[in-house]
Design a protein around this nucleic acid. Sequence first.
DNA 1: ATACTGATGGCCT
DNA 2: GGCCATCAGTATA
Length: 207
Amino acid sequence: MIERWPPGFDADLMRRSFLIRPTVEVARDLVGCLLLIRDPQGAIVGRIVETEAYAGPDDPASHAAKRRTGLVAAMWGESGRAYVYTSYGLHTMLNVVAKVDGAVGAVLIRALEPLAGVEILRERRGPVPDQRLCAGPGLTCRATGITAADHGEEMISGSRFMLAMGDRPERICESGRVGIRDGTEFPWRFFDGNSKAVSAHRGGIPV
DNA sequence: ATACTGATGGCCT
DNA sequence: GGCCATCAGTATA
């Protein structure tokens, strides 16, 4: 039982070594893991059901390919920290820095299946089905209240976030990453093929 | 079901 | 000035 998690969650806390591996492997294995967010109103727990891997300067879709200063510097930093940025001036995106030591990379958290704190999520998202509350990277941050202020936060066991192992999904699918122009040929998007909380099942093949 | 479009701001050149 | 790792709304089938 993890300390300070809501009752009923007896999963194991994630080890840092889980995140100190090749970014693509981590993205795949993160599907099914649990993310806790401590909100002023209470604990939010979500099962990660969709991710994307973004590698270092050689990955044309990665922010690391174009910049290395400012917020993006986090991709060179310690595995387990949050890389948070805003997109299109409107949407906030949450990444977990994950890579072997000396490499560069992060995993975009694209969708969560709500397990606790649904009322908190619904306050920010309105009357949509539970499974659609966090069905996309922008929606995930909007619903959970994650903002640019969370950039750099410790995600494994910090004051704001915690990560835990969950049951491995029956069916993990992969596809090209979405919403990008270059690098669509890499099958670096992973999702739970049985979850209704995934942003889109299109293009997915079992892995 | 897919296709297009406008909103909107930080960070780059 | 020109990008965008998006979303909701509208339109057409």
